[in-house]
C-alpha cells in the first residue's frame, strides 16, 4: 500500500511523543542550570595540583621535575623551579614550583601529565563551568588556583584517591624503614632521579 511506510513511521513518532511524557527512558532532557546530570567518577576535564594537609604551599606534592611540561602534547604547562627547597611527604627536601601555569585554552584534557607524573602531584579536575569574559590571561590557571586539597581529590575521584593514598603511605613507610635500617644520619638520597635531562 502506498503510504503505508509513512503511516508506520508516524506511529513510531506518536509513540515517542506520548512516551516522552511518561516513560523514563524516553525523557532524556534535563533543565541544565537547575538540574544537573551526575558526572561519572572517571570524568576528566583540566588538571589540578594536589596538596596534603591544610597549607597549599607546604603540602604541595609537585617537586617541579618538569616531566609533565616536557610530555604535554600541546605544551600548555609552564613551570619555573624554586631556588630553595621544602620537605616533601617523607621529609626529604625537594624543590617546588615557583611558577606553575596551565593555559586551559590550550589544554586538551588528555591526562598524559597525570600518567607521567611520578609523584601523584597532578590529577584531573571535574570543574567544567570555566567560561571567562577574556580569552587570554583569564584562561591561564596559576599555581594558587590550581592547588587543591587532597580532600577535594577524595571527593571527586574517591576510588583513585584511595589507591594513590595507599601507594604514598607505602612509599613513606618504606622510606622510614630504610632510614631506620641505615640508622646513621646520612643525608637522604633523592628518590628516582626527579629531573631527567
Amino acid at each position: 500500500m502506498l503510504g503505508g511506510g509513512i503511516l508506520k513511521g508516524m506511529a513510531v513518532t506518536a509513540r515517542n511523543f506520548v512516551g516522552s511524557y511518561f516513560i523514563q527512558e524516553r525523557m532524556t532532557t534535563i533543565q541544565y542550570p537547575e538540574e544537573r546530570a551526575p558526572l561519572p567518577e572517571n570524568y576528566r576535564n583540566f588538571p589540578f595540583l594536589v596538596f596534603d594537609g591544610d597549607d597549599a604551599h607546604a603540602g604541595l606534592r609537585c617537586v617541579a621535575c618538569q616531566i609533565c611540561e616536557k610530555e604535554c602534547p600541546p605544551q600548555c604547562i609552564y613551570i619555573v623551579k624554586s631556588k630553595d627547597k621544602k620537605p616533601d611527604f617523607v621529609g626529604k627536601p625537594q624543590l617546588y614550583p615557583a611558577t606553575f601555569d596551565i593555559d586551559i585554552s590550550v589544554c586538551m584534557s588528555c591526562q598524559i601529565c597525570v600518567e607521567v607524573c611520578p609523584f601523584d602531584a597532578i590529577k584531573m579536575d571535574k570543574v567544567f563551568e570555566l567560561s571567562r569574559r577574556e580569552r587570554f590571561d583569564a584562561l591561564l590557571m596559576q599555581k594558587a588556583e590550581l592547588a587543591k586539597s587532597n580532600e577535594y581529590y577524595h571527593q571527586i575521584h574517591p576510588t583513585e584517591a584511595t589507591d594513590v593514598d595507599a601507594g604514598l603511605a607505602a612509599a613513606a613507610a618504606a622510606a622510614a624503614a630504610k632510614k631506620k635500617a641505615v640508622a646513621s644520619p646520612a643525608p637522604p638520597t633523592p628518590p628516582s632521579n626527579p629531573n631527567p635531562a
Binding site: 511506510g5 509513512i6 513511521g9 513518532t13
Partner: peptide, 14 residues
Amino acid sequence: GEFEKLILENEIVI
C-alpha cells in the same frame, strides 16, 4: 527495530 520501522519502509526515503 523502531528506527527501522520509522525509515526503511518510508516511501519518501525509498
